[in-house]
Write a protein that binds this DNA or RNA. Sequence first.
DNA 1: TTAGTTACACTGGACTCCATCATTATTAGG
DNA 2: CCTAATAATGATGGAGTCCAGTGTAACTAA
Lengths: 380, 380
Amino acid sequence: MTEDLAGGDLSTLRHLNGLAVIGVLRGGPALTLTELSRRTGLSRASTEDVVRELRERGWVGEAEPTAGSVGRPARRYRFRADAGRVLGVDVGGHKILAQVADLDGAVLHTRRVAVGPGLGRRERLAAVDDAVNGVLAAAGRAPSTIWASGVATTGLVDGAGRVTLSEALPEWTGVDLAAHLGRLVEGPVLVENDCRLAALAESWTGVARDAEDVVFLLAGLRTGTGLIIGGRLHRGFANAAGEIGALPAAGWSRARNHLKAWTAPGAVADVFAAARSGDREAAEAVDRYVRDLAVGASALVLTLDPELVVIGGGFSRSADLIVEPLRRELDRWCLRTPEIRVSAFGDEGVALGAVRLALGHVESALNRRPPRGAAAARAR
Amino acid sequence: MTEDLAGGDLSTLRHLNGLAVIGVLRGGPALTLTELSRRTGLSRASTEDVVRELRERGWVGEAEPTAGSVGRPARRYRFRADAGRVLGVDVGGHKILAQVADLDGAVLHTRRVAVGPGLGRRERLAAVDDAVNGVLAAAGRAPSTIWASGVATTGLVDGAGRVTLSEALPEWTGVDLAAHLGRLVEGPVLVENDCRLAALAESWTGVARDAEDVVFLLAGLRTGTGLIIGGRLHRGFANAAGEIGALPAAGWSRARNHLKAWTAPGAVADVFAAARSGDREAAEAVDRYVRDLAVGASALVLTLDPELVVIGGGFSRSADLIVEPLRRELDRWCLRTPEIRVSAFGDEGVALGAVRLALGHVESALNRRPPRGAAAARAR
DNA sequence: TTAGTTACACTGGACTCCATCATTATTAGG
DNA sequence: CCTAATAATGATGGAGTCCAGTGTAACTAA
């Protein structure tokens, strides 16, 4: 706040306009200069200038002109999503999921390694190595061609990429994930909590795509949250935002017990199946679970008044049993019950959020020379 | 989000640099071109150009050169805070407080009108008229010289400046404050909830000046909140953020009863006096109050993980009895207890927030020609 | 082949920022 | 009082960026 507002150079302006062009081009179809000019608000001549520079830098490429209409066929330009690659890794309790995506965020290769929740630190890190090396091999890419990497893990993460506290995986506390990944790939490694990244994925291309303020609930044996505020991921001062579960009055510590009490441990998913097929006791267990879940969720909703609540995590497969009672409970407590949507990403949302995290870093470096590979691409 | 990124003109750049200069100049002492140039990062020549334009528009004026050092004395430029005036009005339960401030936000004139909480809608609006007309008269200003006005009121406010729900003042629900104030002053009228504006004031020039994420607690017979997230006031999708008090588990609906139970109604402030002088029962009532307050506060803190919690409102005068127990209670529930500070604004914080709201509007219009009066100033 | 349509490419002009240098106003010292 | 040193002002020219306008190129349709 006390920092002086930086004055802008002419190159600043060009940079902004470059960002505008790329913003229009990203994720969309190839466009002509005229279309680009109209969407950016720049004149045609300037647009051309900006595009030429972006082509020289490797960010933009020419696409096949589409014939068929009257007049001279226009050149079409597209964002060169294939100029670089990013890596997203979900280090979960039951699986390691590594994905390689292009600069549009399209996932090109995936590698999944199953692990047990009881696995030790060393073995789990070895599984991470397997997944990452595997997906790099599948992509036919050297580690040096990865521009940035995002990593998702349970627990609290500090700014440097170390896990400061993991309740689900005790041995995991203290792991320096950023350093570990740094040995597998070049480029920056960004580590973040898994629930937050799942939320980020939803607000990026998921069911929360068009919402500014979102509460994401990861519903599973663990209950976690991710908050999108003003379109951006909210982390909090000590990276501890969204930890409403710590408050006993919020009911989350109690919630899972209702499900566990019903059945033998290790088969919690059966509660939902049983409830669906008419088992009275199971239905009541689910009901009690949702009631407790809703208290904490109401605290989040009342605090933030989001446009949207998104349900993700393992239980989101049983959304048919959860959403309606959750809505009813929220109605009881909240002034305005937000819309409730269910994640459509299955168990890949977290990894996708990790991809987005990596992409965010690439975007912030858009003005600088692209890391590597693009230099070679430019020469082609 | 789906909106196209607008490309920038050269005038955009100039505008940004103008904002940079004004940002450096605002609230600070008069500066020389050299100093300005260094702080904005612009060249001296460009700075001169920007300053000349700002002078022509009336935003910047020349100050007396300070002699005494070697070399040709430099001209000094200052932000022309007196080029315009803004109005801030706090429509409270017990008082109407109207303030006229300059463009730096320095309060120049204040008018206070005492009212009773039981006052009807018509009488309360008449009191607002008194306060506003009074402060305008004291300032020797015609209503047309007010560039923008901010109004604080209890209850929920919709985007158009109508009160949609007021629990404290039943007759108040449905009042169109924006329209009413529009008859007293020219220029835009912005209406917002009082707790939020108090929070805004703290994050502007109060004890939360340097914090990005802040939870503001208005502690009084009503308990209210204002949230600053990412340095900006968070309103929520339906303007209902921070209403954690609606959740019974948060304890706020119960909190005030502890104090009321102790004493005859209408003399709640005595509880604190009694507790301070050793009355055991009163101390316990305060303790119970703080315990309940802390549950809801913990929900806010755990959700947002703010850097800071600020206590304001009527009970903040008894902060000595509240802060320490509150800290202890937060320690019980929160993962990380934020720093707790007490507002230093007394009962003027809300009005100051209203001033800030009006100033925000003026700032957003910085590029356009200043509303009125500045045209005359320019001619001088 | 020709007319019509659309995009490309070039030019000159306006605006903005910047580096540089001569000029001006003031202080310090002889 | 005069001179040197100091620091700001003012003016000039150059470079980068955006823009409007115009002629040229490429393609379709009749």
